[in-house]
Amino acid sequence: MGIEIKKIHNLNINTKSEEYQKQLRKVSEEFAAWYVYEVFKKMYDTVPKSGLLQESFGERWFREMLLQQYALKASKTDLKDLSEMIYRSLGGKKLTEEVNSPNNLEKRSETLKLLNSLIFKNEESGG
């Protein structure tokens, strides 16, 4: 019973604290990276293989790690808007007033359209 009370006590988290916001941002970037990794993986799977050389375990492992690193880098740089949208949707605070600027809203809209088209294509292909 003491454990249950402790678990309930830990649920009382200060969502406005700076540490919580840092962790939320990190989780948002990791989730965006995971999503981008899945897209990269699906893209790689569409590349035709000749079958001339058998793929080794080491090659598969290296490719998976490489795709994960590409996805993580993309979510922190080129697709920063995606991780920012996830961060905001989870209750993250605005860092600057630029978040609601017309230019940024247009970028967010374009990113959402791209994600929706990727999801739609994936559903059509049965993935």
Rank of each mutant, 00 (worst) to 15 (best):
Y70F: 13
E106Y: 15
Y37T: 01
L90I: 05
Y44P: 11
G92R: 02
W34D: 07
F31V: 04
S28V: 03
K26M: 02
G92S: 07
L72C: 11
R25W: 00
L82S: 02
Y87K: 04
E29A: 11
K26D: 01
R25E: 01
F57G: 06
L79T: 00
R63V: 01
P102D: 12
E84T: 06
F62S: 10
Q69H: 13
Y70L: 12
Y37P: 05
S75T: 04
Y70G: 09
M85N: 02
T46H: 12
A71G: 07
K41D: 12
E38I: 00
I86W: 03
Y37L: 03
T46P: 13
V99K: 10
Q69T: 10
Q54T: 12
F40E: 03
F31Q: 03
S89I: 06
W34V: 07
V39S: 10
L53K: 12
L67P: 06
V36N: 01
L95V: 06
L67D: 03
F57A: 11
E64K: 08
K80M: 05
D45L: 04
L95E: 15
Q23N: 15
R60I: 06
E59R: 10
V36E: 00
S89R: 13
E38C: 03
K42P: 12
A32G: 02
K26G: 01
L52V: 09
K41T: 09
K76E: 14
A33E: 05
V99W: 09
M85C: 06
A74R: 02
D45K: 04
I86L: 05
L67N: 04
M85G: 02
K42C: 07
S50I: 06
K41E: 11
V27M: 10
S89K: 13
K94G: 09
V47D: 08
A71M: 08
Q23T: 08
Q54I: 11
Q23H: 13
V36Y: 00
A32W: 00
Q54D: 10
K42R: 15
E55Q: 15
V99N: 09
K22H: 09
Y37N: 01
D78E: 13
V27R: 04
L67E: 02
Q54R: 13
L72G: 12
D45M: 04
R88V: 02
K93C: 05
Y35L: 04
E29D: 14
V36D: 00
L24T: 01
M65A: 15
Y37I: 01
S56K: 11
F62A: 14
S28N: 05
E64M: 06
S75Y: 03
G58Q: 13
Q69L: 14
V27D: 05
E59H: 08
N100D: 15
N103Q: 15
Q21P: 07
P102H: 15
A74M: 03
M43A: 09
V39R: 05
E84L: 10
S50C: 12
D81W: 08
R63H: 05
M43P: 05
P48W: 08
N103F: 14
M85K: 02
N104G: 09
A71E: 02
E97W: 13
Q68V: 06
E97T: 14
V27S: 08
